[in-house]
Amino acid sequence: MKFEVVGIDYDNRIDNFMISARADYEWYLEKTQGSEENLAIQRDIIRGSKPYKNLRADLKMGCILPTIVLAVRNIDASVTGNYNVNDGFISATRADLDSLQNAIAKTTPVDVDIVDGLQRTNALRQTLAELNDDERSVFLLRSLRLEIWVNIAFFPLAYRMLLLNAGQRPMSMKHQIDILSGGLAEDLQDLPGIEIIRLKDHKRRVRPGQFHLSTLAQAFQAWMQRSPNVDRTNLVVETMVVDEALESLGIDLTDNNGNQRDGFRQFVDWLLRLDRSLGEEQNRFFGNDTVVLGFAAAIGFAHKNETLQDRLSNAMTKMIHDAEMDKENPLGVFTFEQIRKSIDAKRSNVGEATRALVFRAVREYIMQDGTSPMIECWTQSASMM
């Protein structure tokens, strides 16, 4: 197997190093083994379309694939500290490139995500399966170009991916966020009290702090687009949503002091504290995806709104405190349940109506700077249904 690092570059917008590399098919397919299954919640793999059938035929003839983009976590990239990030053209020493090469070569598939190239990877695997033994040995020696983002956090990677796809006819934003969900889990896993349940775990939420990765991925989209309804079918609306998402991500990438911040990570921290404050008796409240998406959208709305930004932190601190103190009806959960049960399923989509109910109530609470209790906010939100 062959793998060679040929250069490094630095992206000043997202403050991250990118490694240019070459590998043979054998090395690449081994390092990404299982990625298709790991990313089962993202865009479906295209198996029968004519373009991908043609691609497999071209691969058998020895075509060169467009560069595949990977994100690799948990590697020793300390040698990148030898270089000035302001250099437009970094000339790395062979010794440093070898160091990065060795570090990446030791990584396992669990720390490798396919950011761009899932369909090409599947085409490679399908083509390999169609060959006889002699043909396979030749096929596996062919070269592939790689763009590898090392130890990149979820937030800047999401920004970069959405930005590069915005000028094309992209997969939906939901699919793009789902692709990055492995990095999202990595970015959130050190928050106190969180347990992230992946699709392959086949587990149910049974206690506060447990959240399915698919729920958090949807919550991130709701937070970015400031809307609790994340499924978009209208391409014009989808384009507008991506533009809004890029603006939200851009705000967080660099604040006025030149520091990165992560408003979504702050949201999840608040979510965990609220979840714990409700206790096991009300475990179903934040176990409901519609509630999580409504909260995420409302806090994303306030996060971007110039007027509400200054109220957000204080309001959420007060909400958490009030929930911890109120043992009888924390967060007005019983009031919420009564309103939710009153939604007429014949007249409304219950899921959409519930998400909108939560969104309006939490947004109202923030707008009031936490001066109105959540019971009143639920009631006011219900009056708009």
Results as ranks from 00 to 15, higher is better:
343 I>Y: 06
26 E>N: 13
171 M>D: 04
246 L>V: 08
189 Q>A: 06
121 T>E: 07
305 N>G: 03
270 W>F: 12
315 A>L: 05
243 D>S: 14
186 E>M: 10
143 S>I: 02
346 K>L: 11
1 M>E: 10
137 S>T: 08
136 R>D: 05
202 H>E: 12
241 V>F: 14
72 V>A: 04
227 S>W: 00
368 Q>V: 01
345 A>H: 09
352 E>N: 13
261 R>G: 09
357 L>E: 02
257 N>G: 08
158 A>V: 06
336 F>E: 10
369 D>E: 14
76 D>P: 10
271 L>N: 08
277 S>G: 10
107 T>P: 04
241 V>G: 08
46 I>W: 01
377 C>K: 04
304 K>W: 00
347 R>Q: 15
234 N>S: 03
154 F>S: 09
338 Q>R: 15
49 S>Y: 00
16 N>D: 02
295 F>A: 12
264 F>R: 04
152 I>P: 03
358 V>L: 03
155 F>H: 15
372 S>D: 09
207 R>Y: 11
300 G>C: 06
289 D>I: 11
299 I>Q: 14
371 T>S: 15
199 L>T: 10
153 A>E: 12
298 A>Q: 05
299 I>P: 11
55 L>S: 08
167 G>C: 03
49 S>I: 01
384 M>N: 14
297 A>G: 08
174 K>T: 13
193 G>W: 00
344 D>Q: 07
128 L>D: 04
381 S>N: 09
198 R>F: 08
369 D>V: 01
61 M>F: 00
333 V>Y: 13
82 N>I: 01
253 L>C: 07
190 D>V: 00
200 K>Y: 05
259 N>M: 09
340 R>K: 14
227 S>K: 13
374 M>S: 09
356 A>T: 07
46 I>H: 05
274 L>P: 06
38 N>H: 10
190 D>L: 02
191 L>V: 09
339 I>C: 02
276 R>F: 13
191 L>N: 07
84 N>Y: 04
67 T>N: 14
376 E>M: 11
32 T>P: 04
74 N>T: 02
175 H>V: 03
180 L>K: 04
128 L>I: 07
157 L>V: 02
363 R>I: 03
330 P>C: 11
164 L>N: 10
267 F>Y: 12
378 W>P: 03
269 D>Q: 13
330 P>A: 10
380 Q>P: 01
149 W>Q: 07
7 G>N: 13
147 E>L: 12
188 L>G: 02
147 E>K: 15
348 S>T: 04
44 D>M: 08
214 S>Q: 12
178 D>V: 00
